[in-house]
Nucleic acid binder design. Structure first.
Length: 876
RNA sequence: GGGUCAUUAGCUCAGUUGGUUUAGAGCGCUGCCUUGACAGGGCAGAGGUCAUUGGUUCGAAUCCAAUAUGACCCACCA
């Protein structure tokens, strides 16, 4: 059968993915082997594959496949996250297109639509992961709103409530007026925006005097309930105890004093709006101020907004500024750079808002999680620098607002039975709730229909923080076989952007619910950026279509492309050229295989050169394997790939195959052939985690294999004896080869023309490698001589001198120039070494080993100089 | 405002407890080669005052300090 000269990925990829699925290699069940577990960072159900996912999941697949090859019971659990805000927004938008308003349908009807949506689109991203080659255990695919997941969430909520860690509070929270829900502090992104600072003059009550304040939000004056000055500010002492009149609404408000006010900022006078600013709220509580909320839930003004009622806050800002100016209250405006909080999901400007919400007390929960990372190193971060970020957040942690005013998610299991602040119970189901409510209210006649469940759901992260446990049902059945076997998981691969949202909270939950870490190592990937260092995003349109990339370069090519430049924790500048490099590599491997496959095998003696080359490659392979293992142990995946790349491209293809290659249309001896097939198979194993499809394809081409013998479940190579002498000998020989090639190049001597080589072997180098040198450079004979050969081109390796006699004239000047240049360099080098050795303090203080090395360098350089001088003399 | 990290070849990055030839890799670049695995290839080559300035040391890309530039994280100055 003719093998095409170009590797065609698309058919192979589908074929082998189906084969792997059919033979159940991805599926894991507990057995006597050591487990290796990864839980996927569940992408949003609304998501489509982007470059970040590609990188992230390629890394997970590399780790999983390698673990599998190493004989571990590898289990990579896939799944998706219900992403309440994002998904609810999409469903709302879709309903709107169909002419249905969310508030016109019931909660249950809405949820039906949402589930319908999930059924339709929820699997898209997982299907895309298959295209990438991800070897997830699809039988275990989970979703954060699966029944057992939701039950777990409720159970945990009730438990934390009963422990006194969850409480209900009337607090200032981050309100997203577009999604109409609260957000946690972590979901608020601060963006710098150019705005205006308005200076407004308030009339002092009962006088003609005025007081000027500065604000960025003039529309909130309608909610003002005080003006605050710093008691140490002498400019304003005359205002103490007086009252001011708020413009437009003409409310009389007190002038209070507090050191919180910065004397330097603005005019040193602050307007206080307790309903719409966290600091103002604190002031309000301290000074017992009235709280006036002027906004509706969608951030339009309510009746306190007077004639602005019903208008949006930003419209009002413009209009009220105009009115204030017309009425003479506006003193001036200044350009002002301010930080505005926006919603991570909807991008809407966050409104601080007072409302009843559920909070989780973090202070105690955090302690074991902090210790595990920073003290005991039970959990290791790669790269380590993120431990600082983690520490900082954990040590300054605030209570977590876990309630969201949404429908898509786990509904808060609180049941109200009366109108009092305290008239509620928390229970896993309504029957439990009824019993508790009857007890608490002392009213045995209380019935189910009297109970109203809280309308809110919990934050999405309140379900995903349990993910490493709930995917193995470890909350509902804490003693089941899966959780006992797979937990704690081994590696977590994720982005540093969710270190607080998710990573930290999983660690907290792990210690609280299993008294054990959720994972041993966390590998933080970088952010994928484009060549101009811009973050890849939909709005910029700079994110390539993942599936198109796979079409163009093959999944293996894309995987290699992504991994080539992704040191842990460093952002990665993605460039399609890297995928091209990956594709080229795949083709190189393919052709290396094609060459070997095309050879005719005969029972003839093994050439000495082949024997030596194979021994050398074994040594080189062992040496590289040590390197690769070291890289993996430090999660330096891109270095592990590069080491493999060089082994296969340079050592295997460029050197080994060239040395053993039989003459044109001549057969190869069986011994060499068998050895090279074995070597190819070992290489394929190292390559498989990076390039699963291509390697399986070649593996199965080499020989007919039963499913048990598939590459995906082959045995990872063991580290061998690593013979250094062979590697040194080869390195020396390769320098000789390069010298001869350079001469051929310079003098334009075709490879067909055989040359002779003479050598003055001052280095006493072994002649074992002569056969290899001869084969690769078409040297007919190598003779060992004592004296300089006249009329020859020369080159030197260390202090060995090589001669290639030339029939024609030798350009003496050029030869001399070359030698002089070498001489100059070597003398310079010798000088620097001598300078060190002549320094008494160096000789006295440096370790023995270092001095010996310097002496060796000196001797080598001196020998080389002697050789060069002799050659030069012979030319004169 | 506080903090973390970076700065090495045209680009992307290694350089592990200071000493392994006068600093490496991949890509790119420049020449030449090209019927017998692969032009998605081969061979050879050019290219760096290791951000700057001081300091410690026998010895610094590596340790320390300051400066500059950039990135990220945290923080309630209207």
């Amino acid at each position: 059968m003719e093998i095409p000269s170009k590797y065609e990925p698309s058919s192979a990829e589908n074929r082998w993915y189906d084969y792997w699925m059919k033979n159940n290699y991805f599926h894991s069940i507990p057995d006597e082997r050591e487990p290796y577990t990864i839980v996927i960072p569940p992408p949003n159900v609304t998501g489509v594959l982007h470059m970040g996912h590609m990188l992230n999941n390629t890394l997970q697949d590399v780790l999983t496949r390698r673990a599998r090859l190493m004989g571990k019971n590898a289990c990579w659990v896939p799944g998706t996250d219900h992403a309440s805000i994002a998904t609810e927004a999409k469903v709302v938008a879709r309903l709107k297109e169909q002419g249905i308003a969310k508030n016109s349908i019931s909660r249950d009807e809405f949820l039906e639509h949402a589930w319908e949506w999930k059924k339709e689109y929820g699997g898209v991203i997982l299907e895309q992961l298959k295209k990438l080659g991800c070897s997830c255990d699809w039988d275990r695919t989970a979703f954060t709103m699966d029944d057992n997941m939701s039950e777990s969430v409720i159970k945990v909520f009730v438990d934390l409530f009963n422990k006194g860690l969850i409480y209900r509070g009337y607090r200032m929270v981050n309100w997203d007026p577009q999604a109409q829900t609260t957000l946690s502090d972590e979901e608020v992104i601060y963006e710098e925006k150019q705005g205006l600072l308005y200076y407004l003059a308030y009339q002092i009550e009962g006088s003609d005097e005025k007081v000027t304040i500065a604000t960025t939000r003039p529309e909130t004056i309608l909610g003002d309930t005080a003006i605050c000055i710093n008691p140490n500010d002498e400019r304003h002492h005359h205002l103490k105890g007086k009252r001011a009149i708020v413009p437009i609404c003409e409310r009389s408000i007190p002038i209070i004093e507090d050191e919180y006010v910065e004397i330097e900022f603005g005019t040193g006078c602050l307007k206080v709006t307790p309903a719409h600013d966290v600091n103002d709220k604190a002031l309000g509580e301290k000074h017992n101020l009235e709280t006036i909320d002027i906004f509706n839930a969608d951030a339009t003004l309510n009746s306190f907004g007077l004639h602005y009622e019903g208008k949006d806050r930003f419209t009002v800002r413009k209009e009220i500024a105009q009115e204030l100016e017309e009425k003479g209250f506006l003193v001036k405006t200044e350009q002002y750079l301010t930080k505005v909080g926006t919603s991570e999901r909807t991008k809407a400007v966050i409104e601080p808002r007072l409302s009843d919400q559920w909070f989780l007390k973090m202070e105690e929960l955090v302690k074991p999680a902090l210790k595990a990372v920073l003290e005991t190193e039970d959990i290791k971060f790669f790269p380590k620098k993120f431990e600082n970020t983690y520490r900082h957040w954990m040590e300054n942690i605030r209570d977590w607002n876990i309630s969201r005013q949404l429908w898509w998610g786990q509904r808060i299991p609180a049941y109200y039975y009366g109108d009092g602040q305290d008239d509620f119970v928390v229970a896993e189901n309504i029957d439990e709730a009824l019993k508790l409510a009857q007890d608490k209210s002392n009213d045995p006649k209380l019935a189910i229909e009297h109970l109203r469940q809280d309308e809110d759901v919990v934050d999405t992260w309140f379900s995903s923080w349990l993910w490493p446990m709930t995917v193995f049902n470890g909350i509902l059945e804490p003693d089941n076989d899966d959780i006992k076997y797979y937990y704690p998981t081994n590696d977590l691969v994720t982005g540093p952007d969710i270190i607080f949202f998710w990573v930290a909270r999983m660690i907290i939950a792990g210690y609280e619910y299993r008294n054990e870490k959720p994972f041993k190592n966390v590998y933080f990937t970088g952010i994928v950026r484009d060549k101009q260092r811009r973050k890849m995003s939909k709005s910029l349109g700079n994110s390539p279509d993942a599936l198109k990339l796979i079409d163009d370069y093959g999944a293996d090519g894309v995987r290699v492309g992504l991994l080539l430049s992704s040191a842990a924790g460093n952002d990665l500048m993605f460039d399609e050229d890297l995928c091209q490099q990956g594709k080229n590599f795949a083709n190189k491997i393919w052709n290396g295989f094609r060459l070997v496959k095309g050879w005719e095998v005969a029972d003839i003696p093994q050439p000495q050169a082949s024997k030596l080359a194979i021994e050398w490659f074994h040594a080189k392979f062992d040496q590289t394997l040590v390197e690769i293992e070291d890289h993996y142990s430090k999660y330096r995946i891109s270095d592990a790939l590069m080491a493999t790349y060089k082994l296969v491209w340079d050592d295997y293809s460029s050197w080994l195959l060239e040395i053993i290659k039989p003459a044109y249309q001549k057969p190869i001896d069986r011994t060499t052939f068998d050895a090279v097939i074995d070597i190819l198979e070992q290489n394929l194993k190292l390559l498989h985690p990076f390039m699963p499809f291509l390697t399986e394809e070649i593996w199965q081409h080499i020989a007919a294999r039963t499913p048990k013998e598939a590459l995906i479940v082959a045995e990872w190579p063991k580290i061998g004896k690593n013979d250094n002498g062979l590697i040194k000998g080869f390195d020396f020989a390769s320098e000789v080869i390069a010298g001869i090639r350079t001469i051929r190049k310079d003098k334009n001597i075709a490879m067909k023309e055989a040359l002779e080589l003479s050598v003055i072997n001052s280095e006493n180098a072994s002649n074992d490698w002569d056969v290899v040198i001869q084969k690769l450079t078409n040297i007919s004979s190598i003779s060992y001589v004592d004296e300089t050969v006249e009329g020859a081109l020369t080159f030197r390796v260390k202090s060995n001198e090589y001669f290639i006699p030339m029939a024609g004239t030798i350009d003496i000047d050029a030869e001399m120039k070359k030698i002089r240049e070498e001489l100059e360099y070597t003398r310079g080098f010798l000088q620097s070494v001598q300078k060190k050795l002549q320094n008494e303090r160096f000789v006295n203080n440096a370790p023995e080993k270092v001095i010996a090395l310097e002496r060796k360098k000196q001797a080598d350089a001196e020998a080389k100089i002697e050789t060069l001088e002799k050659s030069l003399a012979s030319l004169l």
